[in-house]
Amino acid sequence: MSKMGNRTNAIKVIARRDIKSTVNGLGIYVVASLAFLVAMLFVRSNLKGVTENGLMVMANPLNYPFFIAVIIGATYLALTSTMSVSRERDQGTLEVLFYGPIDSVAYVLAKFLEQLVTFLGLVIVYMVIFFVISILTNFGMDGSFLAMAGLSVLLAAAIVAFGLLLSTLCRSARTSVILLLVLLILFLAVDVVAGILNSMSAKDMSVTLVYIRVAVDMVNRGLQWISPFGYLNRGMLAIGLGSASLILGSIGASLLYTIVLLALAIRFLERRGVRK
């Protein structure tokens, strides 16, 4: 059998095992429900806005709740993949796997694929439930929502790849999990704060706050190339502008980012080895 054939088999077997383990565990269902409950808070806020004022202008009121649900789901999957790799190494089962016909490329890709397939399942569930909500509330669901659902898969791929990289870099499961959470929260927080500050008029801001806005804007612009959320933002902007070249460019950039992270993860796994 060729190298490709061997790798494909290893990827298939490990991914299938892990998917089965995920689907048979309670974690993914708890996270899905939690994601929906959090998203419903935003839906409730939007509904309240309309009922209180009688009239409200909003762009795609289900997009932000969906985005929140996606973030929660993707982050959970990234955490589980990070913990899974680190735990396998700590427990020694990773070493046992590598006695067999598997290399770092196949292992990392198997872990990545497993999370991506699980996320696809999650997105389908999200879309079904949000579709029901859109009917119940008559918020409606337009092309941008579907585009966001598509882009969310790229976002999840980027976040999972990011988590895998950290798991191969860090010595222990706890360190990699904490680092992943801290970085994702940091990326998200800077993005949100930059958005809030940009929406404020300079007339209403003190000079100090203006300079904070300048600093946050600079940091955010840099982070947009490192943060997985930056690639989602670019994609959503491209869709909003309706530019095919921008859309293709953003998809390409997102894929390249994910590939680079995976390649680094493979490299670090080879260097660090698979033994406890």
Binding site: S33, F36, L37, V43, L47, I133, L136, N138
Partner: peptide, 23 residues
């Protein structure tokens, strides 16, 4: 679009469906 003012409990119940399936 005119929104339908849905009782929130319906949306919360919908949110708990995945958990039910998981159990």
């Amino acid at each position: 679009r005119s929104v339908n003012v849905v009782p929130m409990w319906q949306l919360y119940v919908l949110s708990l469906l995945p958990l039910l399936v998981g159990l």
